[in-house]
């Protein structure tokens, strides 16, 4: 889902005319094991040479490590985001703003504390990474599962199945999905009101409205792959449809799927942050970068650092994924001259 903006994914999709990112199905890389391996090793060599993409990759690894080991890091650092330093001298009792320069930056709180609640900002950012990655990751997984399954089914079986799935994708792609997502979240949130459901519904909404993109790509690839000799060969040897789909066709889709994944995750990170910014995403005490930005919006004239920190966290993470995804696409693209 896009929150009033295009995405790197759209850029890629558009550049490739939505026919397929990455591996060129018209090319001659029949997926014999040996050739396949060499293709991947070529791609890996290319990727390693792309310093910008590798930098993105390193940032991603760091980000994941921070998210996974947030509790450990928090313990080492000696602060936690759950503690509210409201009445222990860190906040000005008159107007609840952090005392001291730069929003209360100190030896104990390296990035200062939040206004009003006096929470440690560094630990909030670490746990915000968790929220962001979990939601973006699971939403992407949902899009993948739906998109690959339905795209594969449509492309492989063609006929009325294809017609049904393709038309559904067309309709979904021309839906004002943003409005419907916001409406859906509000409604479901209203009916249940529980935090865990909010998490699930955000993942669902981001994931569900994202599947037609990958669905289209997969369908296009499968349509041409199913006519290839190796599929014919497998069929003549009596392989079942399921076997052909999973053993012969899917391995050829890994390239585009991988590219799609690295470019959809940042898209979904922005989606989660945007929803949280609008106040319909995750709610406290679950930390979220978007939520912090929305909160900082009230104080940014007095405490600008509080605005920049979560903003930069989103920017750096999303950029890292985009750079890596871009590099990956180039590396997997046999036409690419780079």
């Amino acid at each position: 889902m896009t929150l009033s903006g295009p995405t790197e994914l759209e850029a890629v999709a558009a550049e490739d005319g939505l026919t397929g990112a990455g591996l060129d199905p018209e090319g001659d890389q029949a997926p014999q094991a040996i050739q396949g391996r060499s293709l991947w090793s070529i791609a890996w060599r290319r990727l390693r040479r792309d310093k910008v993409a590798m930098a993105g990759g390193i940032v991603i690894v760091l980000l994941v490590l921070i998210a996974v080991f947030a509790p450990l890091l928090q313990a080492l650092y000696g602060q936690d985001y759950q503690t509210l330093h409201q009445t222990d001298g860190l906040l000005d009792p008159l107007d609840s703003m952090p005392k001291g320069a730069l929003g209360g930056v100190s030896g104990a709180h390296w990035l200062g504390v939040t206004p009003v609640t006096g929470q440690d900002i560094l630990t909030l950012l670490m746990y915000g990474a968790r929220t962001s990655l979990i939601i973006a990751g699971l939403a992407t997984a949902l899009s993948l599962i739906l998109g690959v399954t339905l795209g594969l089914t449509a492309g492989y079986f063609r006929g009325w199945v294809d017609l049904l799935i393709s038309r559904t994708m067309d309709v979904l792609l021309s839906f004002p999905t943003l409005l419907l997502s916001i409406a859906l979240i509000t409604v479901v949130g209203y009916i249940s009101g529980a935090e865990i459901v909010r998490f699930e519904i955000i993942i669902f909404v981001l994931g569900f409205f994202g599947w037609p993109y990958i669905g289209r790509i997969v369908r296009g690839q499968v349509l041409s792959l199913r006519e290839k000799e190796f599929v014919e060969a497998a069929r003549s040897l009596g392989a079942s449809n399921l076997r052909i789909m999973f053993r012969e066709i899917i391995p050829n889709l890994i390239g585009p799927i991988l590219v799609y994944t690295t470019l959809t995750i940042p898209n979904n990170m922005l989606g989660e942050a945007g929803l949280s910014f609008l106040g319909i995403g995750v709610i406290p005490p679950t930390p979220s970068w978007g939520q912090m930005l929305s909160d900082a919006g009230q104080y940014f004239q007095i405490d600008p650092l509080y605005l920049f920190l979560p903003g930069l966290a989103i920017f750096i993470s999303v950029l890292a994924f985009n750079l890596f995804g871009d590099g990956l696409r180039d590396a997997l693209d046999p036409k690419s001259g780079r």
């Binding site: 995405t7 790197e8 945007g274 910014f277 978007g290 930005l293 940014f300 605005l307 989103i314 999303v318």
Partner: peptide
């Protein structure tokens, strides 16, 4: 530029 959310660039 694609990685910059409006809710960050706007306030800045």
């Amino acid at each position: 530029a694609v990685s910059l959310p409006i809710f960050f660039t706007g306030p800045v």
